[in-house]
Nucleic acid binder design. Structure first.
Lengths: 146, 146
DNA sequence: TATATTTACTTGACATGTCAACTATTGATC
DNA sequence: GATCAATAGTTGACATGTCAAGTAAATATA
C-alpha cells in the first residue's frame, strides 16, 4: 500500500501531523460522552487556572494560539451550556471577562481522572527517557532555546 | 509566562499537538497565495499519484484518514476550481471516480519547489540523525512495528 | 476639546471535521 | 426473480479555524 520511501525531512513532518491527528481524535472521543469538545475543554481548563477573576477574551485567545473570532464563539457555546459566565468589565467596557461556573468546575473535576489516564495511555509506548527525548526533539524543532 | 512544570507524559502530548499546529499554520500560509488549502493540496497530491485512472471517493477518504462527507465536499470545491474532474463509474454506478485535471497538475508542478523548501525548512533545526530519531519515536508512540 | 487611532471584541462568510440520516446501487438469499 | 442487507456517496446540522469588516469604548493628538 505504501511503497513510498519518503525522504527523512518529509517523513518527520508527516509523522508529526499523523501523531497529532491521532491524539486529537482519541481525545475528542474520550470527551464526547461528556458533551464537550476538545477546544471547549481547553478553554475550561484555562479558566479554571484563572480563578477567581477569570480572563478576558483576548487573553484566552492568546493562550490558545488561536484567532479571536473562534474564541468568541467557543465561549458563546460554553456560556449556553452554563459552564462559563461572561461579564462586561466596569473599568474598560470593551473587555469581557469570562469565568468558569461551579457547573464548569464540576465537569472538569469529573474529567480529571479520565484525562490523566488518557495522557498516560497515549504515551505508554515510550519509556520515560524516550518521552523526554521526544519532547526535547520537538522543542528543538521550534528552535526552542535549550 | 509558563511556570508550569508539566509531568513528562503531558509534556509529550502538548509538544506534539503544538508542533503539528505550527506546521499546519505555516503550510497553510505557504499555500494561501495559490488559492488552495492544505487539505485540497493533499487530495491533489493523492490524485496525482493515482494517474491516469484516478481514485473513487472512499479510497481518497481512506488515504486521508478522514470521514467521507468531508471528502465529498472537499472535492466539490476542487471540481469547482477545475482542478479535479469526477465521473460516475460505468461498472459500479455507485462509485465516483476522481481524476486530477491538467490545470491541477500544473498547480502542483508550481508548488513542488516551494513545498520541498518548506519541508526542509520545517525540520532544519534538527540534524538528519535527530530527524530519523524523531520519526522513529513518533512511530513507536503509535505502537508501530519496529 | 474635537478628531484620529488603537483596542477589544463581534459578526459574516467560507473551508473543514464529524455525526446522523437518506439515496442509489449492487450483491446475497430465499 | 423479489426482498433484504451491504456499499458508495450525498446532504443536513453543528463545532471550529480564519479572514475581512463592523462596532463600541478608550487613548493619543492636534
Amino acid at each position: 500500500m505504501s511503497p513510498n520511501k519518503l525522504p527523512r525531512h518529509k517523513a518527520v513532518v508527516i509523522a508529526i501531523l499523523h501523531s497529532a491527528d491521532r491524539l486529537r481524535r482519541q481525545a475528542t472521543e474520550m470527551l464526547a460522552p461528556h458533551d464537550i469538545t476538545l477546544q471547549q475543554f481547553n478553554v475550561l481548563r484555562i479558566l479554571r487556572g484563572a480563578r477567581p477573576d477569570g480572563l478576558c477574551t483576548l487573553t484566552i485567545a492568546e493562550r490558545m494560539i488561536e484567532e479571536t473570532p473562534g474564541v468568541t464563539r467557543l465561549i458563546d457555546r460554553l456560556e449556553k451550556k452554563g459552564l462559563v459566565r461572561r461579564v462586561r468589565s466596569a473599568e474598560d467596557r470593551r473587555q469581557v471577562w469570562c469565568r468558569i461556573t461551579p457547573a464548569g468546575e464540576r465537569l472538569l473535576a469529573r474529567l480529571d481522572d479520565p484525562v490523566e489516564a488518557f495522557d498516560r495511555a497515549a504515551v505508554h509506548g515510550l519509556s520515560p527517557a524516550d518521552q523526554d527525548h521526544l519532547t526535547a526533539l520537538l522543542g528543538q524543532l521550534h528552535g526552542e532555546p535549550i
